[in-house]
């Protein structure tokens, strides 16, 4: 009896690339996060800062339009909306606080539950591989980071440009846009990897929040104490968030030559080391399949 005669058939459907499945995973992950009220509250908090900046840029544009002579005066008072790379860097850095809080609580929903409740088997039994799954999850976390940092910063940049008389600001400051995108990409990549690694191992929210707090609150405090006690600023390099900011300032092109360039080299090395450690922690979790529950 041939295979065809018992109902089996060859597979000839037109399907999308498995890489596109990563997008579905990211989108679904983000939707799952946004179903919870807590995240809307945190998003609202992040939006408050954004709206404040948005209003300030508008106010500055209005004041400057009414009386161009006071523009410098306004710039001196409203230092956070000068339209320079530093103002966007500071904005994104500040947004990071809420982002961190959001990520600490989102870890279980986005990644932890797949390991805790066996959801990983649903993914791995489909046409996608572990790479596609990992990319989807990283993309989901990255989108959450971008939602509160990069996207608002880009909107503020466009607003600032649109509020001027011509498009000169946008044309002349394309480097700032690159800086926003670069800093945003660095934050999204590093935070995605670290959160994925922690959530894959710790699975539940409470230990995840504790580990997250240790990494982004305790370690910076320790770094400051050690740098004071030892009188050595190199200890500040254990502050991952500060290292990311240093890389961000490099993206915006606001780095002085000399000592600061060397510092950025060290910061980049530490960030890379953290990324490599995260990847090394993720791989065995993706390989291991829990066989006996």
């Amino acid at each position: 009896m041939s295979v065809d005669s018992v109902g089996f058939r060859g597979w000839s459907e037109r399907l999308t690339s498995p890489w596109l499945s990563s997008w579905s995973i990211a989108r679904t992950g983000l939707l799952l996060v946004l179903r919870r009220k807590l995240f809307w509250i945190l998003l609202g908090l992040a939006l408050l800062n954004f709206l404040f900046m948005f209003a300030l840029i508008y106010l500055k544009a209005q004041l400057s339009a009414q009386n161009p002579a006071i523009e410098r005066f306004v710039d001196r008072i409203l230092t956070s909306v000068t339209g320079t790379g530093d103002s966007y860097l500071n904005f994104m850095f500040l947004q990071g606080t809420v982002t961190m809080l959001m990520l600490a609580f989102a870890g279980e929903v986005l990644v932890g539950s797949d390991f805790q409740q066996g959801g990983l088997t649903f993914y791995l039994s489909r046409r996608i591989s572990r790479r596609h799954y990992a990319l989807g999850k990283l993309l989901g976390i990255g989108m959450l980071v971008s939602l509160t940092t990069t996207i608002p910063a880009v909107i503020l940049f466009i607003e600032y440009g649109a509020m001027t008389d011509s498009l000169t600001y946008l044309r002349e400051n394309w480097r700032i846009l690159l800086g926003i995108l670069g800093y945003g990409a660095i934050m999204a990549t590093v935070l995605s990897l670290v959160l994925f690694a922690l959530a894959a191992w710790l699975e539940k929210t409470v230990p995840l929040v504790m580990a997250w707090a240790a990494l982004f609150v305790l370690l910076p405090v320790l770094g400051r104490i050690l740098s004071r006690v030892q009188d050595d600023e190199d200890w500040l390099l254990i502050m991952l968030w500060r290292n990311l900011r240093l890389l961000g300032s490099w993206c915006f092109g606001s780095v002085d030559a000399g000592e600061e360039t060397e510092l950025i080299g060290w910061a980049a090395s530490i960030v890379l080391l953290v990324c490599a450690a995260s990847v090394a922690a993720i791989i065995p979790r993706l390989r291991a399949i829990r066989v006996v529950q």
Binding site: S113, Q117, T121, F122
Partner: peptide, 11 residues
């Protein structure tokens, strides 16, 4: 494949 795990994506 229908795994035995059934506590998934409650929301």
């Amino acid at each position: 494949y229908c795994p035995d795990a059934d506590a998934f994506y409650e929301e």
